[in-house]
Design a protein around this nucleic acid. Structure first.
Lengths: 167, 167
DNA sequence: AAATATAGTTGAGTTACTCAACTGTTGAGG
DNA sequence: CCTCAACAGTTGAGTAACTCAACTATATTT
């Protein structure tokens, strides 16, 4: 966890691996303007992505949260872990797990190490549906119009934002 | 990896104005993997940004939607326009407008051209609060760790995604 | 053995919406 | 001018996506 930054003094080229943007810094745009424009497009994109998720999920008869959980359960994990990964309260994990179990997409398996905790495991059905949904989302993902190079660049920027922007 | 640096072809420059990413396309990462990783970081960022919005809004005693509306009302507009901009149902605009009006942050002004429609206008208070919130959000925005060049690059990519990725 | 912490559940409440049905206004066609 | 469909906004009911407080059943610490 603590390779957080590598170093604060590292050159930019290293901080965003695989994506070294050589940019024509346009001096006609002030920093404030730039930030405003990023804020605008960013929120638009967030809405777009959110709607995409909802749309695809409901198309397959799931709520957005259920689909999100399905996606994250590629590897089995305990309720607590899923809650942490989804960033939600444990009680909400219960209702999501209930929903998935009711549809036969996942099951709770008692942990052997700790009888308080339960592992969530996808069933075959669950895996199949996850793959279907995943494919549909990818096919309509917002980065569809970007070429490979641009995608690498995007990933680098996203990672830098997450590493340093969290909290 | 570095040997490819700078070999990116010039034509890319046209596709994303003001942001010309010369990218080291790493062949060790498959397209599928790349997309998966983008999907993961992207959803993480979306959550982060969403939480930021909620957090700042509630810190100022507003709901997230109210703050969003406040931000978008920099220029006055009709309910319908605000609904379109926020991407929500007209009926929800009513409740947001009610909330803002009740707090004295905005008021409904009857349109002169069309007596069915009403313009939403921020009060002085509304403008002050919007600026406060805006400042707070900017100070904690996820692109905080990006330098100016990287921000231009990001904006270019975001715009390309919105222009071509939307429905 | 007792006290405390932890994993998960239940129930109540909130926020952020949508949808269907209604009111008052407008604009186009007869 | 009159009608009538389309439209802006509102109301009320319902849903999705949560949180919070309180509880149960284990686990860990003392």
């Amino acid at each position: 966890m603590d390779e957080l930054l590598g170093t604060a003094t590292a050159p930019d080229a290293r901080s965003v691996p695989h994506a070294t943007p050589f940019v024509t810094t346009d001096p006609s745009v002030s920093d404030d303007e730039l930030n405003q424009q990023i804020a605008g497009t960013f929120t638009q994109l967030i809405n777009q992505a959110h709607d995409l998720g909802q749309d695809v999920a409901s198309h397959f008869g799931l709520t957005g949260s259920d689909a999100k959980a399905l996606f994250m359960l590629s590897a089995p994990m305990t309720m607590k872990e899923l809650g942490a990964k989804m960033g939600v309260d444990p009680s909400f994990v219960t209702s999501v797990a209930d929903a998935l179990e009711k549809r036969g997409l996942a099951r709770r398996e008692p942990s052997e190490r700790d009888r308080r905790s339960k592992n969530l495991v996808l069933t075959r059905e669950g895996e199949k549906l996850r793959d279907l949904i995943c494919g549909e989302v990818m096919a309509r993902a917002p980065w569809r119009p970007l070429d490979t190079g641009e995608r690498h660049c995007l990933l680098g920027l996203l990672r830098k934002m997450i590493r340093l922007g969290g909290r």
